[in-house]
């Protein structure tokens, strides 16, 4: 009796499972419709961003590219010299590296890539630090935001390139958008971590002397977390640089486009040169942002 009952329930369970897996849940369709809905509903936001903001950064990139390369290189070398604590390794590397890129006729592309990285990182930091602060202050916010960050970092970039194009057309803006998604998580995470790591006694001390929440944040927590936050910013900048090639697939101009076209035409030489230029830019930016951290901490 018992056995047959068990058999029966088991059988009915299996049938219902089969039914369940027989019909695909229409997740993909749902997302399609969702993206469509967003596009239509937030058109008032996307359009000006696509046009005005797009024009702004392109003009900025063109302005940079139109400056005499010699002056830009000189400025970069001087900056590197002072930020690296008046040592010579970084300025020499900056000089040689940038002259090499100029020599390879990649100067204009470099300026576009630099602009893309600058704008994308800037937006990431502007958004990321407040979100990180929110996360550090509320465990609920942390619980909600953490999986979103995981999602942003692990979702293959190509997946959000598609809606990026739908929202912002092609060009620099979707490039900035894609790079924002990929590069924001580190600065959020590091800000959260940095503030949570501030020693309990220091937080108690500021409370005990009657600091308000805002005073505690600006006078104690953020200064204490600065080194960690700067490390997060450095990571954000590096990640947004690594998005350069992928962003070029949706029309963002710059060094990435040269890599992409070399890939499409199977030209090893030009591909290597463009890739090397990205590496040079990466190293210069990385060392400069790292020194920014050391210098002030």
């Amino acid at each position: 009796m018992m056995l047959s009952m068990t058999k029966f329930t088991l059988l009915s369970f299996i049938t219902s499972m089969e039914e369940f897996f027989g019909n695909t849940i229409p997740v993909a369709e749902g997302v399609d419709r969702f993206v469509e809905w967003i596009t239509e509903t937030f058109n008032w936001f996307f359009d000006p961003v696509k046009n005005d903001f797009g024009n702004l950064i392109e003009n900025f990139a063109e302005l940079l590219a139109s400056l005499p390369a010699s002056i830009v290189i000189l400025l970069a070398v001087v900056l590197a010299y002072f930020l690296s604590g008046r040592r010579f390794a970084l300025p020499v590397f900056t000089l040689v590296g940038l002259l090499f890129i100029y020599n390879q006729q990649l100067w204009e592309q470099l300026m576009f890539t630099f602009t893309l990285v600058l704008v994308a990182s800037f937006i990431s930091v502007i958004v990321g630090i407040p979100v990180g602060i929110l996360m550090s202050k509320s465990s609920l916010a942390e619980a909600i935001i953490k999986p979103i960050l995981d999602f942003m970092q692990t979702m293959p970039a190509f997946v959000y390139l598609i809606p990026a194009v739908v929202f912002f057309g092609i060009g620099m803006v979707p490039g900035v958008f894609a790079s924002f998604i990929f590069a924001t998580p580190p600065v959020v995470r590091f800000t959260n971590l940095g503030i949570r790591q501030v020693s309990k006694e220091l937080v108690e001390a500021s409370d005990a002397f009657g600091a308000t929440g805002k005073q505690k944040l600006f006078k104690v927590e953020l200064p204490m977390a600065k080194t960690t936050i700067m490390a997060g910013i450095n990571q954000t900048v590096m990640l947004s640089l690594s998005m350069v090639v992928i962003a070029s697939m949706i029309g963002a101009p710059g060094l990435g486009r040269d890599v992409l076209s070399a890939l499409q035409r199977a030209q090893e030489g030009p591909g290597f040169v463009a890739g090397l230029s990205i590496v040079i830019l990466a190293i210069i930016i990385d060392r400069i942002t790292q020194n920014l951290n050391k210098g002030k901490a």
Partner: peptide, 27 residues
């Protein structure tokens, strides 16, 4: 009321004077 802490709890990025000023500063 003021408090003195076991592990001092001084703000490492502030000078001795700035640390001492903290309570007055927040006021």
């Amino acid at each position: 009321m003021s408090m003195v802490f076991q592990k001092f709890a001084l703000f490492p990025f502030r000078t001795v004077l700035e640390n001492t000023e903290f309570g007055l500063e927040v006021q």
